[in-house]
Amino acid sequence: MSGPPRLSDDLDALLGRVARGDSAAFATLYDLTKTRVYGLVMRVLRDPGYSEETTQEVYLEVWRTASGYDSAKGSALAWLLTMAHRRAVDRVRAEQAGSRRESRYGAATAGPATASAHDPVADSAIAGDERRRVTECLDALTEAQRQCIELAYYQGLTYSEVSQRLAANLSTIKSRIRDALRGLRNCLDVP
């Protein structure tokens, strides 16, 4: 029970075809994964314009580096979302460092992003079940653990920045992050 196995297998096969330059496979891969990729990027960046740009960069990277994907090292979905998260975090840090400051970012960060912005029509029943399961597992964490995931994963802070933000010492934060992930992993039955 580690996620939707059928989707995973499909994605593995599709990535193999994408690696050989198959643009139809790339289109299918995009259709199957766009809500996950865009949704995660949007959760980090909170600006639709920036999120679409970053999503484009992610899929370009997929197109370019699909041949480097090794299914022995993890699932295709994890490979893809790791790339998406990395780019989103890089972008949010660059924006916050002010190196590419644009006013629309400030305006767009006001409201907290919520998970409710999805399109229910696009969600299959399986995706809906998985979403519910994830929500339950997140709810099972302590408030402090959820806060660590929020800051370290969704807001793009480093663990040292998290410790400063929460005025907690580094080793406390490190173990809190680790415990949060361990809790999620066990709850979601990830091997």
Partner: peptide, 24 residues
């Protein structure tokens, strides 16, 4: 990373239809 890939179900969101054309 596998765990967070599953967790991404909770943040799924539909991008605009134009994005598809721009990417493909």
């Amino acid at each position: 990373r596998e765990t967070m890939a599953i967790v991404s179900a909770a943040t799924a969101a539909e991008p605009s239809a134009q994005l598809r054309g721009a990417i493909l």
